[in-house]
């Protein structure tokens, strides 16, 4: 399983797992979007604690989810990023799209 999703009230948390690249990002995207469409959350949390590697496909994944949640008036949170993942995200300025706590 590339992503485990929990729903609590209006908050969806997606626990991403493993390595995020062009190959794996598609599966994660589909699972998250299905949960968002079903639950229309006010907050989507992407939890990176179990992500061991990420390239710019992960940036595409985050930017894409921002576009999905925005029409619902939802907020995007990014949490538990390692120094490596934080470095890739900062390069893309993702801290401007989403609330990032480490």
């Amino acid at each position: 399983m590339a992503v485990k999703i929990t729903v609590s009230g209006e908050v969806i948390t997606a626990y991403l797992d493993g390595e995020i690249d062009h190959h794996t990002a598609g599966v994660m995207r589909n699972e998250i979007d299905a949960a968002v469409e079903k639950n229309m959350p006010t907050m989507l949390v992407l939890d990176f604690r179990d992500v061991s590697f990420m390239d710019s496909s992960g940036i595409g994944l985050v930017m894409g989810r921002y576009k999905v949640i925005k029409p619902y008036g939802g907020e995007l949170h990014i949490t538990n990023t390692s120094p490596h993942i934080g470095k890739v995200m900062k390069l893309a300025g993702l801290d401007r799209l989403a609330k990032m706590d480490r």
Binding site: A25, R29, S56, S57, G60, G64, V88, L91, A92
Partner: peptide, 10 residues
């Protein structure tokens, strides 16, 4: 849509 356009930047 899902590509960030950051490959060379990285």
């Amino acid at each position: 849509e899902e590509r960030a356009g950051l490959g060379f930047a990285v």
